[in-house]
């Protein structure tokens, strides 16, 4: 993956020199260990700022919205991992952005690292982290460790079956081998195996530290509504305090709004300051979308999402 960045830079330099795009949305280096920052590069000179490593865990499709596109129809380029590209496709399928205004620089991805899993291995705060291929050298005041990426892979990346962008204009590297999983949703199955009370307690425990900063929602490319239901004042759909019912309502409805649209990119969990795995909600929907409709979001520009269309074959045994 580290050779990708050279290809990404070469592609961007070429795009700017030919005047094909107005800007490139990518990742820049961060100011602290294990951080990156989304950036819009607007000139050839700034291409050097781009980085790509295992900490580019946010979803850049979030920065490609109706309002962010050049009004004159000029193109923008986006550095896209498999999931970012799928979310760009979702934007296009949902008529948010036109295909011809987005230039997709596809990145074959071998997964992102879980910062929390790395931090857990340390007693004190991490002061430095460098990546060399698939290993990290991580340093704190008390210890130094060499960690293999596969040991600290993010959960969603472990269960990713679309590491290569399904739609792209150019690839910044050879496609990587896709994973074939015997059990694609063991986490969902695990929760499903609990009795109802335990399941309820599981989700209550999961969200109990939620501070309602809405980072999960705002990091999600699917959440582009002009006004979110939690921000409506008249009517006010949900209370704004720390009441557990209001918190659960927010998480349940946020997740359901992603039904049949979520690509399990993991940006919500990456963004959460409290380390809440909100994917426990969305993963159930992803599993159902696959089981009931054979659907995975963002794979095809020409297929309508299952909750978008009616088919006589749709499962209907829940309607009485």
């Amino acid at each position: 993956m580290d050779t990708c960045i050279e290809k990404i830079k070469a592609i961007c330099t070429d795009l700017f020199s030919k005047g094909e795009v107005e800007k490139v949305i990518g990742f820049a280096g961060g100011s602290i260990p294990m951080a990156t920052r989304p950036i819009a590069v607007t000139s050839e000179a700034d291409v050097e700022k781009l980085v790509f490593n295992a900490f580019c865990g946010l979803n850049l499709a979030n920065y490609v919205t109706k309002n962010n596109l050049p009004k004159d129809g000029a193109k923008i380029a986006v550095v896209a991992k498999g999931c970012d590209a799928r979310n760009l496709v979702t934007h296009m399928v949902e008529n948010q952005v036109p295909r011809d205004q987005v230039y997709i620089i596809g990145v074959p991805c071998t997964g992102m690292a879980d910062k929390r899993r790395i931090a857990q291995r340390f007693e004190d705060e991490i002061t430095q982290c460098t990546q060399d291929g698939d290993t990290f050298t991580v340093t704190s005041a008390l210890q130094q460790e060499v960690i293999a990426k596969k040991d600290v892979l993010r959960h969603n990346c472990q269960y990713c079956t679309h590491r290569n962008p399904p739609v792209y204009d150019v690839m910044a590297g050879e496609p990587v081998e896709e994973q074939i999983l015997d059990q694609p949703f063991p986490d969902v199955d695990h929760i499903a195996s609990m009795d109802p009370e335990t399941r309820w307690d599981h989700f209550a425990e999961l969200t109990k530290n939620c501070i309602r900063c809405y980072a999960c929602r705002n990091a999600c490319p699917l959440c582009y509504c002009p006004t979110c239901f939690v921000d409506e004042s008249s009517p006010q759909w949900v209370g704004k305090g720390q009441d557990e019912t209001d918190i659960t309502t927010f998480h349940f409805l946020r997740a359901f709004h992603c039904a049949g649209r979520c690509t399990d990119c993991g940006a919500c969990v990456e963004a959460c300051p409290m380390g809440i795995n909100v994917r426990d909600f969305t993963r159930k929907l992803n599993k159902d979308a696959l089981d009931l409709f054979g659907w995975e979001a963002g794979m095809d520009l020409d297929r309508r999402p299952p909750l978008d269309v009616y088919s006589p074959d749709d499962p209907d045994d829940f309607i009485k």
Binding site: F256, A259, F318
Partner: peptide, 9 residues
């Protein structure tokens, strides 16, 4: 799917 998610919860 909404019913399934609620049941899952």
């Amino acid at each position: 799917m909404m019913g399934n998610l609620l049941e899952h919860m």
